[in-house]
Nucleic acid binder design. Sequence first.
RNA 1: GGCCCCGUCGUCUAGAGGCCUAGGACACGGCCCUUUCAAGGCCGCGACACGGGUUCGACUCCCGUCGGGGUCACCA
Length: 548
Amino acid sequence: MTDSPVVTRFAPSPTGYLHVGGARTALFSWLLARHHGGRFLLRIEDTDLARSTEQATTQLLEDLRWLGLDHDNAKVIHQSRRLDVYNRIIDELMSRGMAYRAYETPEQLDALRAEAERKKQSFTYRKGALPEAEQRRLDSEGCPHVVRFAMPVREYRFDDAVLGKSIVMPADEAQDFVIRKTDGMPTYHFAVVVDDAEMEISHILRGQEHTKNTFYHVALQEALGYARPVYGHLPIILNVDGSKMGKRDRDKKVRHGAHLWLKQGKHTPSDLAAASGLESDRVAAWLDDVQRQLDLPEQAAVMGVIGMSEGDLPEVLVHDFQKNGYLPEVLLNFLALLGWSPGEDRERMSVEEMVRLFSIDGIGKSNARFGRDKLLAFNTEAVAAADAQRLLRGFRDYLAVNPDSPLNQASDSQLSQLLEMKKGFRLFREVDESARFLFIPDDRIAWSAEAIDKVLRKSGGQGLAALRQMRHTLAALGEWTVPNIESAIQSYCESSGLGLGKVAQPLRVAISGGTISPPIFQSLAFLTQASALTRIDRCLRVAAPVSL
RNA sequence: GGCCCCGUCGUCUAGAGGCCUAGGACACGGCCCUUUCAAGGCCGCGACACGGGUUCGACUCCCGUCGGGGUCACCA
């Protein structure tokens, strides 16, 4: 047992929203630190100038905040602001002859790689390709160059805490990798090693795609005299079908929906562009090329036009889960289970329990598929067990990222009332969507043709007849309360010999426009009597224009 | 393709040689409840990738085959 403090970190590159893979890596690192009473630090790896954005950083922080994965460094570290540190160390390495300038252009390197491939050899870059004199000449001319680390050619190995074994790289795979790019920025390999050492990181949990990089990092650590942290490489999270998970899946789904919309409505790509307020060329190119992706606002615009909603898309970003109405602690619980188990049959855990039970030993070695069914079930349970305050807070978090919902006008007590009415719901989105009709003006209710047909006109207009009767009964009601409404409707059912379903459904359609709503008595009571009657009258006009 | 990692129900997993006629969860199927959507109750279906070893004994150890994934950047 060592008593040196456990310090972990999450070090995302700000190139987009946080996705579930990243969230799980963050979670495991966070759990490890919290379990040992250590520290969890956050660092932004923004050394790729072209791809990093300020907005992504903001969103990343917001996603982590929503998840509740708090970091212990008040000041988040940005690598792009530490160039002087990296350059100082790189200069030092060069003066020690452990790093050198290299002048090949990307094209030249491509050619070398292609040649190696043709000879069925693997390409490894090693110093010495250039005669000493030539190297000096180029150095003195100040041509564009990268700096490479002269990686000592020998076997490297490290112990992987997740796999529970040591991983070896043979000497012939050692190569002089780039540590400073032509633009003067350090590469990931270099910045990561320097920063992890300076931040005194003790444990690094990261995705399996980094396994091979670890040998480079170990070599650098040895050259710089840094301590080696414990490494653990996490298995990958895949789609349900076994393919690699990515944001692309959502784009794919939207494109598919767009093509359907074009075909069914006999629209052209420029119609779509015009309707969604985008450039026609861009939309057309996107439709034809599966490699292209729309950015988020564009995606939303297109979805609006073709009638797709957030719930139709597979969630891959943490933000998507918030937007669809999951509780963050549920996402965390589910993500933790994807690749980690506390043993025995333990599954539903609060964040505190996960902290208590977490250990690297419990992390699995095989890739996991991300199935949303179980997550949904977890959320349903959690939401049923949560107290009113938690639900209200969760609902507000949901509404904050769904600014278009009319429920944003609702008061806290109204929201709590809806949550109570919809007991048994799975996602906040369901509560929202099924209750929106309660918050829009009477003259904005749009009746679904299908609902009117099925519930009101079918069976010789039985539904319409019931609705007309109920209109009178409800109009005659004194006090507009749930018990009064209920007893009025119940007694009508008895006297008419109709089942409650035959009466409730027409009413539901009349006041909501569709066939899904919170329980009917409470929905009616939520509206005013006048409003309910207005809606019924309008519905009757819409459904039976001839007979009126 | 080279190198590396992995392989238990459809999915996530428990399992560290006899506790296993392989446990749990979700999904699925059936029945019940029900004013819609949900929720709930009861019952059920369902896996150790394959082939060789080692052992008195293998889901557990070894080898091979097959399958999946990762990686081969001046991206992280």
